[in-house]
């Protein structure tokens, strides 16, 4: 369980994290989403007591991280940059970390086997590939068998098999009742791994929700409608503020033909339209009120990627177009 309340981090005049509050609950994987520079890594470092918040607090299992007598038992972390001395073997690295908590050597062997680094355990970590480094990082995070895992871009540099392995590992660990906070810029990966989402932009909380809710709320959502009176329905929907387009591919007609059908009287064949900005319930009610037959009424949800781009667009544009004014927000 991680609880952030009013978390703020300022570097000089620049605000990296701005009054961020969220709760990461046990039992599910919580995704931490945001464009580059949104403050994800800074927030994770504050959770781990590495960065001191300018204002606000973040508690792990009800206590400040610095006050935990046995941090490794509560939290395991994998940070964005490798936290591994290149001159040391994987085994010695893990052993040194384990000693701080009196963790026995057999646990070191266990985590080495868990991440599949047995063959290279005695080799210097400096020669490790990015993927092997990530695995070693995950082994370090698992040493104390923590109730909470904080992972910054854990699939970075992993091959497809490794990505799948991480996904299964994290879902399994969450299912055991652990708290898992995971940041990733790979939206598809997040959609497959996370259940809940914390979305940030410019250091501020944009949404704290479930993946499902997040996608449903995005403006990229459409309703696919098939009706013999599609043109009529399109006009009704447009009057309610919806944007209507013909789905040419499904109608099996060229765009010119589709347009002419839209303008003219509805033919006997069923035409397909895409309605954006109006929920399927309202379209159904409209159809009933005007006696329009419906052959199909299908809500089509945007992908997580579309939802993310839609919701964080402002944040990204703000960052790239006018970096100077971002300082002016404070």
């Amino acid at each position: 369980m991680i609880e952030a309340r009013g978390l703020t981090k300022r570097y000089g005049g620049k605000v990296a994290v701005d009054n961020l509050s969220f709760t990461v609950r046990p039992g599910v994987v919580t995704g931490f989403l945001g464009p580059n520079g949104a403050g994800k890594s800074t927030t994770m470092r504050m959770i781990l007591g590495l960065d001191r918040p300018t204002r606000g607090t973040v508690l792990v299992d009800g206590r400040r991280y610095r006050d935990l007598a046995s941090p490794a038992r509560h939290v395991g972390a994998l940070l964005e940059s490798r936290a591994i001395h290149t001159g040391r073997s994987a085994q010695d690295h893990l052993l040194a970390l384990a000693h701080t908590h009196g963790i026995p050597r057999r646990r070191v062997d266990e985590v080495i086997d868990l991440v599949g680094l047995r063959d290279v355990a005695r080799k210097r970590a400096g020669g490790f590939s990015l993927g092997m480094g990530q695995r070693l990082g995950i082994a370090s995070a698992m040493l104390g068998d923590p109730g909470t895992l904080v992972l910054d871009e854990p699939v970075n540099g992993l091959d497809p098999e490794g990505v799948r392995w991480i996904r299964d590992l994290l879902r399994g660990l969450a299912a055991e009742g652990r708290t898992i906070l995971l940041s990733s810029h790979l939206m598809s990966e997040m959609a497959m791994t996370a259940t809940n989402l914390i979305v940030v932009g410019r250091g501020r909380l944009i949404q704290e929700t479930s993946v499902e809710e997040f996608v449903r709320g995005a403006s990229g959502n459409r309703v696919h409608v098939r009706s013999p009176q599609a043109g009529e329905l399109a006009e009704l929907a447009a009057r309610e503020g919806a944007t209507v387009t013909y789905s040419a591919a499904l109608a099996g007609a060229s765009s010119a033909a589709a347009a002419s059908t839209f303008e003219g009287a509805p033919g006997s064949e069923a035409d397909a339209i895409e309605v954006a900005g109006l929920p399927s319930e309202r379209i159904g009610e409209l159809a009933r009120a005007y006696g329009i037959a419906l052959y199909e009424l299908t809500p089509r949800l945007a992908s997580l990627e579309e939802a993310f781009m839609d919701i964080t667009r402002d944040a990204v544009e703000f960052n790239t177009a006018a970096p100077a004014t971002s300082e002016g927000t404070r």
Partner: peptide
């Protein structure tokens, strides 16, 4: 090497 984050993360 960044090892300091692992070290201080375990001994906050």
């Amino acid at each position: 090497t960044g090892m300091i984050r692992a070290t201080l993360g375990l001994v906050p």
